[in-house]
Simulated assay, not measured.
Amino acid sequence: MTGSPSADPAPVKNVVFIGGSFVAISAVMKMRTAPLPPGYRIVVVEPHNHAHYMFGFPRAAVISGFERELFVPYDNLFATPETGVVVHAKAISITRTEVKLDRAVEGFGDSITFDYMVYCTGARHPSPGNLNDSHTKAEGIAVLKSYQMRIANAKKIVIAGAGAVGLELAAEIKEHYPEKTVTIVHSRDRYMMGYKMGIHSKSYGILKELGVHQILGDRLIIPDSGVEDGVLCTLRTKLGKEIECDLLIPCTGMTPNSDVLATLSPAVINPANNLVRIKQTLQIDDDAYPNIFAGGDVVDSADIKTGLSAFWHADTIVQVNKPFMKPSMWLVFDLTRIGLSRTSSR
């Protein structure tokens, strides 16, 4: 735990953030200038001991020298333990007023009571775009250095999936190792479907100039045995293309971390995508729990899932999650106007 709660004769009311994500960090920083009323404290529950600056991971998976800078300690998030603490544990279940932890933590035990909660656990992505299971800085650096070595030793690299991570990874590899063969395979007929066509055109042009082989509108058939690093094999696509490969890097799929909230309200999870249904106030879409909010990549909203959207979610949550505000005073926000919406970005 970063910081320790001080003894206080009056009961402390907790505003708990599940997940030390950009939503939580941004909300905490905003609350420095608009603090909670006396008697309230922020508690961030996060299993990682450092915040992950994941936007730099694709480059750090290729180029060495700055891995350490991408893992930021939570130590200075709060000025005093009275205003907030970071609890390094994993939330495993939630009740109406309590978060159950996977371990006992000093000052709390194995559970934390709350008056308000913000669920901002994000989503799992394949590494190296996201290092979900690297709980320490050393573990995260080791994963990135492992990718650096694997990429340096490979000659024919195939990237499956061309979201933001896949596109940047392909460009970083080919720019740093122009002698290597890099192929990117994407199931859609253009890149970054949620954005304007210009984003696709620019991305396609950069990769073409670098010499990346681009296959759009097709999918890789990955053998059950996978692809062994350093062993040349031939991969096939569903449309019959053949690609030589000695290193396969999957960059497809996003799995929302909504399972813990489902222990409280299964109905709030959209079965079509496992995202959390929310109201325009960013309260979860269950009238039984007006004190529980959600934001970031885990929510089922119209905006595109970016860091910018997470910051806007945090701004909304700060404004409507003040404990001294009555429900009738909660503001309503149009989520299509927060961050980059799927309409405005086209």
Results as ranks from 00 to 15, higher is better:
Met1Pro: 07
Gly3Pro: 04
Pro9Asp: 08
Pro11Asn: 14
Val15Ser: 02
Gly20His: 00
Ala27Met: 06
Met31Gly: 02
Thr33Phe: 08
Gly39Asn: 13
Pro47Ser: 11
Asn49Pro: 08
Asn49Met: 11
His50Gln: 11
Ala60Thr: 01
Phe66Val: 14
Asn76Glu: 14
Leu77Tyr: 02
Phe78Gln: 01
Gly84Tyr: 01
Lys90Asp: 09
Lys90Asn: 08
Ala91Pro: 06
Glu98Thr: 15
Val99Ile: 15
Lys100Thr: 15
Lys100Val: 15
Asp102Phe: 09
Val105Gly: 07
Ile112Met: 14
Phe114Gln: 12
His125Ala: 14
Pro126Trp: 04
Pro126Asn: 12
Pro128Met: 02
Gly129Leu: 04
Leu131Glu: 01
Thr136Phe: 03
Thr136Cys: 03
Thr136Lys: 04
Ala138Gly: 10
Glu139Val: 11
Val143Ile: 14
Arg150Gly: 07
Ile151Leu: 08
Ala152Met: 10
Ala152Glu: 13
Ala162Asp: 02
Gly163Met: 06
Leu167Met: 11
Glu168Phe: 04
Val182Ala: 09
Ser187Ala: 15
Arg188Ile: 03
Asp189Gly: 10
Gly194Phe: 01
Met197Leu: 12
Gly205Pro: 04
Gly205Ala: 15
Leu207Phe: 05
Glu209Trp: 07
Leu210Phe: 03
Leu210Cys: 02
Gly211Glu: 04
Ile222Thr: 07
Pro223Gly: 08
Asp224Phe: 10
Thr234Trp: 03
Arg236Asp: 13
Arg236Met: 13
Thr237Ile: 10
Lys238His: 13
Glu242Val: 05
Ile243Phe: 01
Ile249His: 00
Gly253Cys: 12
Thr255Met: 11
Ser258Gln: 09
Val260Glu: 01
Pro271Leu: 14
Ala272Asp: 15
Asn273Val: 09
Leu275Gln: 06
Arg277Gln: 14
Arg277Trp: 02
Ile284Lys: 01
Ala294Cys: 10
Val298Gln: 00
Val299Phe: 01
Ala302Val: 14
Asp303Ser: 11
Thr306Cys: 04
Ala310Glu: 03
Phe311Thr: 12
His313Tyr: 10
Ile317Glu: 10
Asn321His: 13
Pro323Val: 12
Met325Trp: 10
Arg337Glu: 14
Ile338Ala: 07
Ser341Ile: 07
Ser341Trp: 02
Arg342Met: 12
Arg346Gln: 09
